[in-house]
Design a protein around this nucleic acid. Sequence first.
DNA 1: TTGGATTATTAAACAGTGTTTAATTATTTT
DNA 2: AAAATAATTAAACACTGTTTAATAATCCAA
Lengths: 205, 205
Amino acid sequence: MGIADRKERDKEELREKILHAAKDLFLIKGFEKTSIRNIADQIEYSPGIIYHYFRDKNEIFHALHQEGFRQLMAKMSVLASVRNPIERLKAMGSIYVSFALENPDMYDLMFIKEAPIDHVIDLEHDDWKEGGGTFNFLRGTVQESINLGYFKGHDPEALSYMIWSVVHGMVSLSIRKRCDVVLASRKDSIVSDALDEFYKIIDRL
Amino acid sequence: MGIADRKERDKEELREKILHAAKDLFLIKGFEKTSIRNIADQIEYSPGIIYHYFRDKNEIFHALHQEGFRQLMAKMSVLASVRNPIERLKAMGSIYVSFALENPDMYDLMFIKEAPIDHVIDLEHDDWKEGGGTFNFLRGTVQESINLGYFKGHDPEALSYMIWSVVHGMVSLSIRKRCDVVLASRKDSIVSDALDEFYKIIDRL
DNA sequence: TTGGATTATTAAACAGTGTTTAATTATTTT
DNA sequence: AAAATAATTAAACACTGTTTAATAATCCAA
């Protein structure tokens, strides 16, 4: 079935081209300001073609969303070798924050934008659960820490959510420029400074 | 100058009507999905009139943004009577979170949406600074706590940003439905559970 | 009270959006 | 080579924020 295969590959190729163009444009102009026509112009096809590869603009969103999670998980995977769960926890925080600050638009897409999460819930729920996912990695690390005697009296799941909230809060306030108003002078360092404050607290528990 | 006054009042009245309609619609449909024409329909005027009262859609955003901050600050003001800064800190967290969960769309507008923050920075910077503002209230409370011997070795400003990040992170992940995917079973209670975890940590410092 | 200036309001248009439709071109199968 | 199928497009639809010029309403001075 070599011919069918090649056809399949050709189709996949154009799909990737659309996705690539979409990502490029969105990193420059932002997601909502990137139009279907912009993407079509970029790949030198007519706008209509995009609807043969994606149901709507949200499905492009969703595909990029998945790619972002693959990237983040790849960055996290180096932590498998860190034995001490508290050390791993802190390293996770640093990786999470640096991923967000180095790829603010991708982070925005993954964790801030409202777009089609309903869609994501349906389609990605299984991926999340079986694939482990970043949150389960965090929850596991917290559980390990508790097993070693840290975080006494804490609920592992709620504590994990709190920890996620700290790092997400820091980077999302920064990305959406909410600290510029109130912390203009140190807006470039405040996130890493605040992360250090959090590490100090962890060390004292 | 009674006539000029009345004219002024009439103008103000329509301005308020636009704002009211905009807020109503936006609470139902969301901000981006509320169009100028929708607002015009609601108040039974033509779309063009809105541009005689607001420069553009962002200026409506900005007006609602200010209203939200007035609301939040009003809720916070009851805390002036709480003497113990640690108690006040925790009460602030609870008020902040409940404000966000009770007015998710308003919170979204104030702290999550990207819209015209540049505009806000220019216009609102002074309000923020002199009027105190929520963040300065937090910073002051943290400073008071430090003066009383709490949070030893911490930088008050960075610590304040970290604390803000915790509560903002919790509610914004919830509002933007990022916990639904990963914590479906307890998505309604996770925010308050996580806040409790944070309080436990504060109590142990 | 009337006429002119000013102001408030509107209708219509512009350039853009996501999406759908039917028509066209290209490719594959018979 | 003809018929069937698939890929691609042009054109339209109903919407968006915003601007323009024209209209309607109001005010102010003579």
